[in-house]
């Protein structure tokens, strides 16, 4: 039974896109990964409009005092088990905002992150690889 559940989760990860103060470039790359050219529906990946339907959260951008409560709220609204995937160098570290007073550090200080995808912005291929790596962790 447990294998069956994991099979279901692996074969149909629905992603929800959390744009937490990114420069929008990572978001555009995520959208590019969803175009017919890469055809992620082959692996069952679908972009959903509500965190309640999501299995994986794609978080972009550098986390700061304003967006932190929102990101935590979205994470709490997502039914578990769910994966969190940080997209872009911003989400991995503080990137170029190292010395900013407003930045509260990388994501895993606040919510559990499964995979980080570095790159500024990462290529669509890298994003797909990251999602696959996250699924392998299950």
């Amino acid at each position: 039974m447990k294998d069956f559940r994991i099979w279901g989760l692996k074969k149909s990860p629905w992603v929800f896109h959390v744009a937490a103060a990114s420069c929008n470039n990572c978001d555009i790359e995520i959208l590019a990964a969803l175009t017919p050219r890469f055809d992620v529906e082959r692996f069952g990946i679908v972009l959903v409009g509500s965190p309640r339907h999501a299995d994986a959260l794609l978080v972009t951008g550098v986390i700061n005092r304003k967006t932190l409560p929102r990101v935590i709220q979205v994470y709490q609204q997502t039914p578990k088990p769910c994966l969190v995937i940080g997209v872009g160098t911003c989400s991995c570290s503080k990137h170029m905002f190292e010395d900013s007073y407003n930045v509260v550090g990388p994501y895993d200080k606040h919510i559990p992150v499964d995979v980080y995808i570095p790159g500024c912005p990462p290529k669509p291929e890298a994003i797909i690889l990251g999602v696959v790596k996250a699924l392998q962790k299950l």
Partner: peptide, 19 residues
């Protein structure tokens, strides 16, 4: 595009049940 494999709706259904 190529599109999903035939068992896709079943995978979706069982995944939703286990959540």
């Amino acid at each position: 595009r190529v599109g999903p494999p035939w068992f896709q709706p079943f995978a979706d259904f069982f995944k939703l049940l286990s959540k």
